[in-house]
Design a protein around this nucleic acid. Structure first.
Length: 883
RNA sequence: GGGCGGAUAGCUCAGUUGGGAGAGCAUCGGCCUUACAAGCCGAGGGUCACAGGUUCGAACCCUGUUCCGCCUACCA
């Protein structure tokens, strides 16, 4: 048999491109709706079509890919369904900006032309993030890629809208909503970002009508006084009781408004008198409703004062604030201005300060939907991991308010409602030809489009063909798992829960894994404005995709944000390199290997081989277990530890004598077989994390054809796990470590050979050590290895491993002072242990109350350590005699 | 205001039923040992934020405090 040799170093780039193409061409990512394998499904959190890959995406998709590849290798029929989101406002903004460069405006173009332009943009640039996901190695079923504006998904949107409308769960009305004066659209509560800002509290005198008295109100937004329709005081506030029912002159307007009593007013805040502007404040709106006050909108859609603002008409809202303050000062009505910090709402797309406004909008009545969504999690139909997020989910769901779903933009699903001159509103899945009431055929469709999250709320089933009852839906809904960041728990997860339960009758996911946010190494959120963004593509380019993915997995501890430290990525790049070199070693040492297709009986194998197989099986079990519970960091660390420190540091070193020597060819063949088996299994364990290098290396293995993706994920064989054997190996390893320690501490060059004499060994251990003599000699670099029953050798360095005393004669270059120092150090350590154990064991309460096993264990330890100490002290005594 | 999370080695972080604190990087010392110097071997380094409590025993459970982060809210 001849074997391919590996190139000297791993070149990620070429390998990654090669294998990704191979996987795609081979249809390896394609789910099969005809398969009778158990289904496993994940829908991707669709990134914005405008987006480009950031760390959040990279983490999110790496974790999904790990699960997808893991489950696929376990024999599941995996569907990982990808796609993008049309991102209404964001996309419209992007295209508008492009148009602005050409001095064009959306409104001049007209709706149809603009939409056409957006589609063109989508075709050209919308694929960026998809390609970046591919670069990451994502094993999505790209044949099923969806876009929220696809025809099928749009149909689902209409179905849902019409159905909810008919049931009375969608309504239209005049309410106060968040308005972005720049985007010129309504926003839902969630789309408003609150930020702490330094502001002022203006104290303004409102003269009481017919009295020689003024009522002072405090406000942060004096410009809204133009829309005041009352002043409210607390009904229990003695200072103002006599004013309730009277009226005040609203300064600068000539209007007169009532003084009302409402318990919402906080006696202790400001002046205790609250001006009420139902047209521009959420609270005031509610108070206004309670007291049947008029709600006056004094601003236009761009945030300028409108004609109802009298002489201020046309003035921008903040400019108006200054002017009003000036004017109040002139009239002597401004009492004072205090500094006051408060939180101000901003548009999540453009950061403009939002303006609460009264406006005709469409809403979803969410209470009943939310109740069902709460139930599903309470019953365990959907499990949220880590569980702490359930509380957040419940909290939000329990306090949810009706969802404003209409947006005054063009890019999105246009609301399927048509208006007839006769006053009829037709809500219908298909475009109506004429009014069912008056037969008039000149109908006008609603201008507004739906919130993007309305369509993404349907994602788990609309992408599988709903409302058509497809095979995919049958097989893959509900999905097995959703992986997403907590930042869209409300935006998206909660809404998918509501819609899935409503329209599919079951929750869309069995489990939801919520991962953390990726931050910079200081712990700050990455953002363009902070300039601390680490571009995942740059990292992939520098360290390779596998190293990057492995880093993300290793960082992904549950419930904790990730502070990405590039040094660790560098460390995992070295790990990739290590794997490569270990493989290279193996392939260089396969001379004469005959593949017998089956592993030798373990009885025939030497200690090292049996040990590595035992460890390997344990590792396989632990990795599966960790992945099943979404402990990605544990899984990564377990396999890292095994491959580097057990396989490379110990096993490969231990088998070198067998592979290099000209000894028993059968023994060598066995070891070669074991080495290949361990490598193959390691690649399989690593594959979900590092798809590329493992596929590449797998292809070099003799006897392997086809993709590692199609191979079976390692299942642990518990009959191979052997604790006694692992203990035996540990004794050998500790012996080697003791020799290395003496050499290191005594300044003896590692290459200089020394003798090892073992005294006081038990018969069993002696046999085992003798069997491994060759191994000990080579790895510990000994020129002789022997046992003695007689006196301890003189002039030797000493160590104690279990019951064994180890002696290394130091011959001519003996350094007694050094060895004395070293022994004292060892004795010091041992004494500390003894002191601790002594204290514990002399505590009657401990002996009496602690479990027997624990007490026994400590007693045994105490004896062992006592023995060790006496041996070390003896050695020290003998050493002193030499002086 | 409410809620959640964090504080462990110089740095970044693990530590799930409470039983003598771990990793990687960094540091120090020694090695070109024919897979790998992106490596190998050895060593040093922690009153697990603070104060109480429960327990034979606490990084872990309970209470309180301080500092940091995030989410959320009708903070005029």
């Amino acid at each position: 048999m001849t074997f391919k040799e590996l190139p000297k170093s791993y070149e990620p780039k070429e390998v990654e491109e090669k294998w990704y193409r191979y996987w795609i061409d081979g249809g390896n990512f394609t789910a099969n709706e005809e398969s009778d394998q158990p289904p496993y499904s994940i829908v991707i959190p669709p990134p914005n079509v405008t987006g480009s890959l950031h760390m959040g995406h990279a983490l999110n998709n790496t974790l999904q890919d790990i699960m997808a590849r893991f489950k696929r290798m376990q024999g599941y029929n995996v569907l990982w369904l990808p796609g993008t989101d049309h991102a209404g406002i964001a996309t419209q903004n992007v295209v508008e900006k492009q148009l602005a460069l050409q001095n064009k405006a959306r409104k001049e173009m007209g709706r149809d032309l603009f939409i056409k332009r957006v589609w063109e943009w989508k075709e050209e640039s919308g694929g960026v993030i998809v390609n970046q996901l591919k670069r990451l190695g994502s094993s999505c079923d790209w044949r099923r890629e969806r876009f929220t504006m696809d025809e099928g998904l749009s149909m689902a949107v209409r179905e849902v809208f019409v159905s909810l409308y008919k049931e009375g769960l969608i309504y239209k009305g005049d309410y106060i909503i968040n308005w972005c004066p720049r985007c010129q659209t309504a926003l839902s509560d969630l789309e408003v970002e609150h930020k702490e800002e330094k502001g002022h509290l203006f104290h303004i005198k409102y003269p009481v009508k017919g009295e020689n008295e003024t009522l002072v109100v405090a406000t942060t937004r004096p410009e809204t006084m133009l829309g005041d329709t009352a002043v409210a005081v607390n009904p229990d506030d003695d200072r103002f009781k006599h004013l309730i029912g009277k009226e005040v002159h609203l300064p600068l307007t000539g209007r007169v408004i009532p003084i009302i009593a409402d318990s919402h007013v906080d006696v202790k805040f400001g002046t205790g008198a609250l001006k009420i502007t139902p047209g521009h404040d959420f609270n005031d709106f509610e108070i206004g409703q309670r007291h049947s006050l008029d709600a006056i909108s004094v601003m236009d859609k761009e945030g300028r004062i409108n004609e109802l603002g009298g002489s201020y008409a046309g003035v921008e809202r903040y400019e108006c604030r200054d002017r009003i303050v000036d004017d109040l000062k002139k009239e002597g009505l401004l009492v004072k201005i205090e500094d006051h910090d408060h939180s101000v709402g901003h548009c999540y797309r453009c950061q403009t300060t939002v303006e609460p406004m009264i406006s005709k909008q469409w809403f979803v009545k969410v209470q009943s939907l939310a109740d069902a969504a709460i139930d599903a999690v309470k019953k365990g139909e959907t499990k949220i991991v880590p569980q702490q997020w359930e509380k957040t989910y419940f909290d939000w769901m329990e306090n949810i308010k009706d969802w404003c779903i209409s947006r005054q933009i063009w890019w999105g699903h246009r609301i399927p409602a048509w208006y007839c001159d006769c006053g009829e509103i037709i809500v219908s899945v298909s475009d109506p030809d004429s009014c069912p009431k008056c037969q008039n055929s000149s109908l006008r469709q609603e201008d507004d489009v739906l919130d993007t999250w309305f369509s993404s709320a349907l994602w788990p089933f609309s992408t599988m063909g709903w409302p058509t009852q497809t095979k995919e839906l049958d097989l893959f809904y509900p999905t097995s798992l959703l992986i997403t960041g907590f930042d869209i728990l409300f935006f998206w997860v909660a809404r998918m829960m509501m819609m899935g339960l409503k329209f599919m009758g079951s929750a869309p996911f069995k489990e939801v894994y919520i991962h953390a946010l990726v931050r910079d190494s200081e712990g700050n959120k990455m953002s363009k404005s902070r300039g601390n963004v680490i571009d995942p593509l740059v990292i992939m380019e520098k360290y390779g995709t596998d190293a990057f993915r492995f880093s993300l997995a290793a960082f992904a501890a549950q419930g904790r944000d990730i502070k990405l430290d590039e040094a660790r990525v560098d460390g995992y790049r070295n790990f990739v390199n290590k794997i490569w070199n270990a493989s290279r070693f193996a392939l260089m040492n396969l001379e004469g290997f005959e593949d017998k297709k089956v592993l030798p009986n373990k009885e025939e194998l030497p200690l090292a081989d049996r040990w590595v197989l035992s460890r390997l099986n344990r590792t396989a079990k632990d990795v599966s277990c960790a992945l099943d519970t979404y402990k990605f960091n544990e899984a990564a660390n377990i396999v890292y530890q095994f491959v580097w420190h057990e396989l490379c540091d110990w096993y490969i070193e231990m088998i070198k004598p067998v592979l290099y020597g000209d000894g028993d060819s059968n023994e060598r063949n066995n070891t070669q077989a074991v080495l290949l088996e361990v490598l193959r299994t390691s690649y399989q364990l690593l594959h979900p994390f590092m798809p590329f290098i493992t596929e590449e290396l797998f292809s070099y293995l003799p006897g392997e054809e086809g993709s590692i993706m199609k191979s079976r994920f390692p299942e642990s064989d518990s009959s191979v796990v052997d604790e006694a054997l692992e203990a035996e190996m540990e004794r050998v390893m500790n012996t080697i470590k003791a020799v290395r320690n003496i050499k290191g501490e005594m300044g003896i060059s590692p290459s200089s050979s020394v003798s090892l004499i073992v005294r006081g060994v038990s018969e069993r251990h002696q046999q085992s050590l003798m069997k491994n003599e060759n191994l000990l000699k080579i790895i510990a670099r000994l020129d002789s290895f022997s046992f003695t029953d007689g006196d301890a050798p003189e002039g030797a360095a000493t160590a104690v491993v279990e019951e064994m005393e180890l002696y290394i004669p130091l011959k001519g270059h003996v350094n007694i002072d050094e060895e004395e120092k070293r022994l004292n150090k060892e004795i010091g350590k041992v004494e500390k242990d003894l002191e601790f154990l002594q204290k514990k064991l002399s505590n009657k309460a401990f002996i009496g109350k602690a479990p027997k096993e624990v007490v026994e264990k400590d007693k045994k330890r105490f004896e062992e350590v006592m023995l060790m100490k006496s041996k070390l002290v003896d050695s020290l005594g003998r050493l002193k005699c030499l002086k």
